[in-house]
């Protein structure tokens, strides 16, 4: 009897040992209602379905990234997700020290045999949102409010503008970045001011790619009776009838998929890119924006989506 119990116990342990996952969130924190939170939703879904809990950590300074990844690896965590491009160099440093640990870097590129790099073609969802904005605009002027001025956000801006011009070559696009420090991700007051100044110049749709700052952008659009476009997570519900759509970036899908693959033993290292074709990016359509994202617009967007996936429409990508 005891032997059977022992056997069962060890089998259970072996099963549990299959994957011991951990996740390192970036400065924004687990509950940023945007990028990091999307990752945490993927974690929550994985835990709900498998009963395997993730350990997590929110970093507060750059040195902690390496430190905490090492610590997780040393404590026997064998699957570590690093959220955000700024963690790439930390993964690059720690991964070679622990060849048996599987690492996933979101929004970054690391070429190592135990790292999976997950990137998104944000320009594709931004392109569709730019089209939606141009199709909804009555003034022929639209706006963009970015968070911190970094390549990633320029990628959004470029796709957005290209999408708008795809519909209306003569459209005017106002572009503002909130700031040059990480606090630009969390400055809703300034976000609202930038949106208002763009409205003042005649814009009637504004797209934000600015994390927490975007809350102010969307509020300003709601107050002015104009339209805004959300980012990363589906934000249509925040101001129903004023948020035209949201540029979705399915970090949750990426995290969930990688964790599931690691659990099933089908995880492989290398580079994965999520675009429209993989349903990794897209635009949102639900009961909150059904009334403003008309079927005519939806049809145009779906057509464009098919064209982009098939390669008939080229979406420009921001390069250095």
């Amino acid at each position: 009897m005891r032997i059977i119990l022992l056997f069962l116990l060890s089998a259970a342990c072996a099963l549990a040992e299959g994957i011991k996952p951990a996740i390192v969130y970036d400065f924004g924190g687990k509950f940023d209602r945007s990028f990091n939170q999307s990752a945490s939703e993927g974690v929550a879904r994985f835990t709900r379905e498998t009963g395997i809990a993730f350990r997590d950590f929110e970093v507060t300074n750059a040195t902690q990234r390496v430190q905490v990844m090492r610590q997780f690896a040393r404590h026997g965590y064998n699957f570590i997700v690093a959220v955000g491009f700024s963690q790439a160099s930390a993964v690059e440093q720690v991964a070679p020290e622990f060849p048996d640990v599987r690492f996933v870097i979101i929004d970054g590129n690391v070429d190592l045999p135990n790292v999976e790099s997950v990137n998104f073609r944000e320009q594709e969802s931004s392109f569709l949102c730019g089209m939606a904005a141009a199709l909804s605009s009555k003034t022929g002027k639209i706006g963009f409010v970015g968070g911190m001025d970094i390549p990633l956000i320029r990628k959004f801006a470029l796709g957005y503008e290209a999408g708008a011009r795809h519909v209306n070559p003569k459209i005017e696009v106002f572009e503002n970045m909130t700031g040059s420090t990480p606090s630009a991700w969390n400055d809703p007051t300034r976000g609202a001011e930038l949106a208002k100044s763009q409205f003042g110049r005649g814009a009637d749709v504004v797209f934000h790619a600015a994390g927490g700052t975007g809350m102010g952008v969307m509020q300003a659009a709601q107050d002015a009776g104009l339209l805004s476009i959300g980012c990363d997570s589906n934000q249509d519900y925040i101001h129903p009838g004023s948020v035209l759509t949201s540029a979705l970036k399915r970090v949750d899908v990426a995290v969930y998929r990688a964790a599931t693959a690691a659990r099933n033993g089908s995880w492989v290292h290398g580079h994965v890119t999520f675009g429209l074709a993989e349903d990794g990016v897209g635009y949102s359509l639900d009961e909150y924006n059904r009334a403003i994202l008309t079927p005519a617009i939806e049809k145009r967007l779906e057509d464009a989506k098919r064209d982009i996936v098939a390669g008939r429409v080229a979406v420009p990508e921001y390069r250095e």
């Binding site: 491009f85 790439a88 970094i150 390549p151 990633l152 040059s180």
Partner: peptide
């Protein structure tokens, strides 16, 4: 302090960045 941070962001994003990566380093 704000000027320093604006200057550094501009330098890192536009000039000093290692080509081909997201992170301004």
């Amino acid at each position: 302090n704000f000027l320093a941070s604006a200057l550094m962001t501009w330098l890192l994003v536009n000039i000093l960045i290692k080509p081909g990566q997201q992170s301004p380093e």
